[in-house]
Computed example of a mutant assay.
Amino acid sequence: MEKQHFGAVYRVTNTLTGEFYVGASKETAKRRLSMHKHDAKRGRNSAMAQAIRKHGIEAFTAETVAQAYSAKQLRLLEEFYFLEGKLMTDKCINSGKFTPYEDNAEAFTGANNPNAKLTKEQIKTVVRIKGRLRRGQAVILAKTLGVGRNYITQLRSGAVWQETVKQAKELPPLKFSEALLLLEAGVNND
């Protein structure tokens, strides 16, 4: 039986300068490049977004450098390629910080992930909204929180942040307008 891959380490290379970025994702390398492009359009201040704005998306290629078959393996491979890029060349544009892998599957998920864009309180607020969201409402939430509309759908379905979603479903529901006010105000609703 063939192992099903969990994710991959990818490298995005600037063909004009030779600089590159190393990342890990469950998404394909091509999809991650598209997501970096979206971040650049939205004005994010990451090194990748700045490079895309400076040189144009056409200057970049994306490739998969390693496949992983578990969260632990993915994290270790990312760490290896990150360190290799930083130590072997001055062309790696990843930030200088990298949180080493801890032998704990939950160490880098949800709120423990140093790159998490949302807090547990924000997740709970989104999940507590009564009923099904209309597309426009999901877009408003996504823009308010700085994430993609599909991520809002994943949150609401429990595909991500499972433990926090479970806790949120035990809390009283909110109207969309109430939730939006809480999110805009940054109020803790625990």
Rank of each mutant, 00 (worst) to 15 (best):
154 Q>L: 09
87 L>E: 03
34 S>N: 05
7 G>N: 07
47 A>I: 06
27 E>L: 14
55 H>Y: 12
119 T>Q: 05
44 R>E: 13
169 K>T: 00
100 P>D: 12
45 N>M: 10
190 D>C: 05
91 K>V: 10
156 R>N: 00
164 T>Y: 01
33 L>F: 06
150 N>T: 15
129 I>M: 07
5 H>Q: 05
134 R>Q: 15
92 C>D: 10
37 K>L: 11
96 G>K: 11
177 S>M: 09
16 L>G: 01
50 Q>F: 03
98 F>I: 10
71 A>N: 10
179 A>I: 01
56 G>Y: 06
147 V>C: 10
11 R>S: 05
157 S>R: 10
152 I>C: 04
174 L>C: 02
131 G>V: 14
58 E>D: 14
85 G>M: 12
155 L>P: 00
54 K>W: 10
44 R>K: 09
132 R>C: 00
78 E>V: 13
57 I>D: 14
25 S>W: 09
170 E>S: 12
183 L>V: 11
92 C>Y: 01
135 R>M: 09
73 Q>R: 05
56 G>K: 15
155 L>N: 04
141 L>S: 02
125 T>V: 14
126 V>N: 03
42 R>W: 07
35 M>P: 04
135 R>H: 15
83 L>M: 08
58 E>V: 06
9 V>C: 07
107 A>G: 02
156 R>I: 05
92 C>I: 03
136 G>S: 12
117 K>V: 09
134 R>M: 04
26 K>G: 08
63 E>I: 08
58 E>R: 12
97 K>P: 02
176 F>Q: 05
166 K>Q: 06
66 A>E: 14
115 N>M: 06
44 R>D: 11
27 E>F: 12
14 N>Q: 11
162 Q>L: 02
58 E>Y: 07
111 A>W: 09
166 K>I: 05
86 K>Y: 10
8 A>F: 04
122 Q>G: 05
169 K>E: 02
166 K>M: 04
97 K>V: 08
133 L>Y: 02
47 A>N: 15
18 G>D: 06
2 E>K: 02
176 F>I: 05
148 G>H: 09
53 R>F: 08
112 N>K: 10
181 L>N: 13
4 Q>M: 11
93 I>S: 07
92 C>N: 13
23 G>H: 08
98 F>V: 06
134 R>H: 15
100 P>R: 15
122 Q>T: 07
27 E>V: 08
59 A>Q: 15
3 K>G: 06
92 C>P: 02
26 K>E: 04
52 I>R: 14
58 E>S: 14
1 M>R: 14
157 S>P: 01
145 L>H: 02
151 Y>T: 06
124 K>D: 01
113 N>V: 01
28 T>W: 07
23 G>F: 10
99 T>D: 12
91 K>T: 12
164 T>W: 00
22 V>H: 02
171 L>S: 03
63 E>A: 09
69 Y>C: 12
